[in-house]
Design a protein around this nucleic acid. Structure first.
Length: 306
DNA sequence: AAACGATGCAACCGCGAGACT
DNA sequence: TAGTCTCGCGGTTGCATCGTT
């Protein structure tokens, strides 16, 4: 038996964007058959379309199917995609089965154009979902151009850019821990803990805190991404000017209820003293602010999102 | 207003797996 | 059992739109 060449390679078969007439012909044909396609290979001829069967299938499944949901992805959907991707990898079709009305192609595009970049900006590897070391953050989008002048100008005197980035990250995580807490605890315990380098026992304390708050770092990571990726880090750091109150999205099924139920800014650090049997040795922010380098940075900077 | 680059998305391509003969 | 067919998946491309200079 000789395999017949794929119709996609026929010279006369039309390619490119679909016209309204073609869409209508395809939809009407499928509707005439009660929504059943039968053979995609034979469909174009039966429907009077000069298209490859493969192209028809793609057009139907990704665009014309009546149950397709259009419009922007919600926070819930985004969070779910990230969670599923962390578990499944690039299994877009499998991920799509968990989101009503979303196609694998749409999810794949949304990942590549939005979520992937967002994770990189945060310093999270979109493939492994682990925190990137500072040198990789530089290579993956958080370029030196995004750093405040104060940091760059101080870099030379502090042993190079990586050193400064580490300290900048440490400060940012520290402030997140104090203002919002959970994100920093989860992210740091993931793989990379610059804060520990400047605050002795800091990570131990954050881990203890996470334990007391029934936190699992992986859950926290997933939960935290969607909540603070959208916001400028400075907003989170500025306790006197809290971010506009956005309704907390309902939790995805896999998230601990006690975590998901709380507003993002009220999570683990809430009630520090209640959680710890002994007073927690928090770093003195006054001493940090007295340091000209940090003071300058705090006053002038917009830290790049990590 | 025009040129240019960045971005987002629809569509295409090649391949693998399972069904079929 | 081997060869072929068909479908579906994931990666990639091309183009339209938007924003910036």
């Amino acid at each position: 038996m000789v395999r017949s060449p794929c119709c996609c390679h026929d010279a006369g078969v039309k390619k490119g964007p679909w016209t309204e007439e073609e869409d209508r012909a395809l939809v009407e044909h499928i509707q005439r058959h009660g929504g059943h396609v039968g053979s995609w290979r034979n469909l174009p001829k039966a429907a009077g379309l000069n298209r490859c069967g493969k192209s028809c299938r793609l057009r139907w499944t990704n665009y014309l199917r009546p149950d397709i949901k259009r419009g922007n992805f919600t926070d819930d959907e985004e969070r779910l995609i990230i969670a599923l991707h962390a578990e499944l990898g690039n299994k877009w079709s499998t991920i799509a089965t968990h989101l009503d009305g979303r196609t694998d192609n749409e999810i794949k595009n949304y990942w590549n154009t939005h979520i992937r970049k967002k994770l990189l900006r945060m310093g999270v590897d979109p493939v492994t979902h682990q925190r990137l070391p500072p040198e990789d953050i530089l290579l993956n989008g958080a370029t030196p151009a995004g750093l405040p002048e104060a940091i760059l100008s101080a870099a030379a005197s502090l042993g190079g850019l990586n050193s400064v980035l580490v300290q900048a990250q440490a400060l940012q995580l520290l402030l997140q821990a104090i203002n919002g807490g959970a994100a920093a605890a989860g992210l740091m315990s993931n793989s990379f803990s610059p804060a520990a380098s400047i605050v002795p026992n800091f990570q131990d304390q954050m881990n203890l805190l996470a334990h007391h708050a029934s936190y699992r770092p992986a859950d926290d990571y997933l939960n935290s991404i969607a909540s603070f990726a959208e916001h400028d880090v400075v907003q989170q750091q500025n306790a006197s000017a809290p971010a506009p109150a956005a309704p907390a999205p309902p939790p995805a099924a896999s998230f601990p209820q006690e975590v998901a139920a709380a507003p993002a800014d009220d999570r683990p650090v809430q009630g520090f003293s209640d959680l710890l049997s002994e007073p927690m040795e928090m770093p003195s922010m006054c001493s940090l602010e007295d340091d000209p380098f940090w003071k300058d940075m705090l006053e002038s900077s917009r830290l790049p999102p990590l």
